[in-house]
Computed example of a mutant assay.
Amino acid sequence: MVRTVFHFLSLVALVAAIMAGTLDAIESVSSSAVVMTSLGNHWQNLDVVSLTLAEEAFASYISADAWRWAVAPVLAQPAFGVFLVIALLFWMIGYRRPRFAGRFSA
């Protein structure tokens, strides 16, 4: 059951990565230059209030310095890359090795 949840989260992150990559590809073709939009830029275009609330909550519960050192560099990365890494991590968490002796072993 838990593996299914992680595989579903991996699928959602993979779809988000494909959508972000497609948007960047369309914008790159239309501007005749390579465009890679950062995760922070996508988040800001989607909902500015939630980005501000996340920063304030992180600063009040953890530390304002931790936001600058941990979260800000991630938000500066291309969105499709971040979502691909998240999809890979969720898939790896939900992965189960095949049994050594095969399917019908005791």
Rank of each mutant, 00 (worst) to 15 (best):
L11Q: 06
V12T: 10
V12M: 06
A13Y: 12
L14T: 01
L14S: 07
V15W: 00
A16W: 00
I18F: 01
M19T: 06
M19K: 08
A20Y: 08
A20H: 03
G21F: 01
G21S: 01
T22W: 00
L23Q: 02
D24F: 00
D24Q: 00
D24T: 00
D24C: 03
A25G: 03
A25V: 05
A25C: 00
I26Y: 00
S28P: 01
S28I: 03
V29K: 01
S30L: 07
S30T: 02
S30G: 03
S30Y: 05
S31M: 05
S31Y: 01
S31V: 00
S32N: 11
V35D: 02
V35W: 04
V35R: 05
V35Y: 07
L39I: 08
G40A: 04
N41L: 04
H42L: 09
Q44H: 15
Q44W: 14
Q44N: 14
N45F: 04
N45A: 13
V48E: 10
V48S: 12
V49Y: 09
V49Q: 09
S50N: 12
L51Y: 06
T52P: 02
T52S: 09
L53C: 05
L53Y: 13
L53I: 13
A54Q: 09
E56P: 10
E56K: 13
A57F: 04
A57E: 08
A57M: 06
F58S: 14
Y61R: 13
I62C: 12
S63E: 12
S63Q: 08
S63P: 04
A64S: 13
A64M: 10
D65P: 10
W67F: 12
R68K: 13
R68T: 09
R68S: 13
W69M: 05
A70L: 03
V71L: 15
A72E: 03
A72T: 13
P73K: 06
P73I: 11
V74E: 07
L75P: 03
Q77T: 02
P78A: 06
P78G: 10
A79L: 06
F80H: 12
G81V: 14
L84W: 13
L84K: 06
V85H: 13
V85L: 15
V85Y: 14
I86A: 14
A87F: 12
L88H: 07
F90K: 15
F90T: 10
W91I: 14
M92D: 05
I93R: 14
R97L: 10
R97V: 06
